[in-house]
C-alpha cells in the first residue's frame, strides 16, 4: 500500500511542479543569469559583463528616484492601511454590510482602479475638484497628478483605498475569534474600550497584523501598475512618482537594455526579500496560547 501512496503523490505532483519550474523558477534563474550580461533583448550572444550592471545602479538617477519613492511608500502605506483597517474593523463589529462595502475595491482589477482614480483626479472635470468646488473650496482645486509635490501622495491614497478593505475583513475575522469571556472579564476589571483594544484585542490578533505588514511591505515596493496607468509621463511629473518596477520596465522595453533591467529585477528581489524577513523579525511577538 505504501508504495502505491508515494507513486500517487509523485504522479499528482509532477505536473504542477513542472509547470512551476518552467513558468516561475526558470524565468527567475534566467533573470539572474542575464543580470550579468549586456543583453539587448534580440541578440543571440550577449556579452558577460560581471557586476557592471549592479555598480551602474548606484548612479542611475531614475533607479535612485524609484528607490526613494518606494521607500516613502514603504513608510506610509502599510502603517496607514493597518491603522485604518484596525479602526474600521473595530468600529464596524457585527455590521457585515460595511465590510462588504469596504471589500468592494478588492474585487476590481488594478487597471480599473487606476483608470477610475485618474478620472477622480483629472483637473477640469474630475470628481475631486468638482467636490471641492461644491464645498466652496475653489482655491483648493489642483492638477493633482501633475503637481510634483502631490502626485506620489495621490498614488499612495489610491493604494491605501484599494487595499484597506481586504485587511478590514481579515482583522474582523480575527477579532471575532477572540473569546468573549476574556473581553468580559477585562471589562469587569474596569478596563475601558481603548485599553481592551490595546491590551487584549491587538495581542490576540497579532498574527493577522503581522501577515498584513509583510504583504503590504511587498506591495509598497511595487506600485508599478498604478503608476504606469495613472501618472503623468508615466512616473512623472519629472519622475516624482517613479517606482523601481516602472524603471525596470522602461529600461527593458523602451531603452532595450534587458541585461541591465534584469540586474534591477535581481536587486528588487533581494530588497523585497530582506524587507520581508526584517518585517517578520521586527513584528515578532510571543504567541498568546489559548487552550
Amino acid at each position: 500500500m505504501r508504495h502505491g501512496k508515494y507513486r500517487f503523490l509523485a504522479g499528482s505532483l509532477i505536473v504542477p511542479l513542472t509547470l512551476y519550474g518552467v513558468f516561475v523558477l526558470s524565468p527567475y534563474l534566467q533573470a539572474f543569469q542575464l543580470a550579468f550580461t549586456n543583453w539587448n533583448g534580440v541578440d543571440s550572444a550577449p556579452v558577460f559583463t560581471g557586476f557592471d550592471n549592479f555598480s551602474k545602479l548606484w548612479d542611475d538617477p531614475l533607479f535612485l528616484a524609484g528607490l526613494r519613492n518606494n521607500g516613502l511608500m514603504l513608510l506610509v502605506v502599510p502603517l496607514a492601511v493597518i491603522v485604518l483597517a484596525l479602526a474600521l474593523a473595530a468600529g464596524t463589529r457585527g455590521t457585515k454590510v460595511y465590510r462588504v462595502v469596504y471589500f468592494f475595491p478588492q474585487l476590481l482589477s488594478v487597471a480599473i482602479i487606476a483608470v477610475l482614480w485618474q478620472f477622480v483626479y483629472t483637473p477640469n472635470s474630475g470628481l475631486l475638484n468638482g467636490a471641492l468646488s461644491a464645498l466652496g473650496l475653489d482655491s483648493w482645486r489642483q492638477s493633482w497628478l501633475a503637481e510634483p509635490n502631490l502626485a506620489l501622495w495621490c498614488v499612495m491614497a489610491v493604494m491605501i483605498w484599494s487595499s484597506v478593505g481586504f485587511y478590514v475583513v481579515l482583522f474582523s475575522a480575527a477579532m471575532e475569534s477572540v473569546p468573549g469571556d476574556i473581553m468580559e472579564a477585562a471589562a469587569i476589571d474596569g478596563a475601558g474600550p481603548v485599553t481592551v483594544f490595546r491590551r487584549i484585542t491587538i495581542p490576540l490578533i497579532w498574527e493577522s497584523v503581522q501577515v498584513g505588514w509583510i504583504y503590504l511591505g511587498i506591495a509598497a515596493l511595487d506600485g508599478f501598475a498604478l503608476v504606469q496607468i495613472m501618472t503623468v509621463g508615466p512616473g512623472g511629473p519629472d519622475n516624482s512618482t517613479e517606482v523601481m518596477g516602472l524603471g525596470l520596465y522602461r529600461t527593458a522595453f523602451t531603452f532595450g537594455k534587458f541585461g541591465y533591467a534584469s540586474a534591477m529585477g535581481v536587486a528588487i528581489f533581494f530588497l523585497t526579500l530582506s524587507i520581508a524577513v526584517l518585517l517578520l523579525r521586527v513584528t515578532k511577538r510571543e504567541r498568546v496560547e489559548m487552550a
Binding site: 519550474g21 518552467v22 526558470s26 534563474l29 534566467q30 539572474f32 542575464l34 543571440s44
Partner: peptide, 18 residues
C-alpha cells in the same frame, strides 16, 4: 528541494540560445 529540482533539470539554460 526547489533549488535541487531546478538545477537538475538545467532550467538556467537560456533565453538567448541562437
Amino acid at each position: 528541494g526547489v533549488a535541487a529540482v531546478a538545477a537538475s533539470t538545467g532550467l538556467a539554460a537560456c533565453a538567448t540560445a541562437g
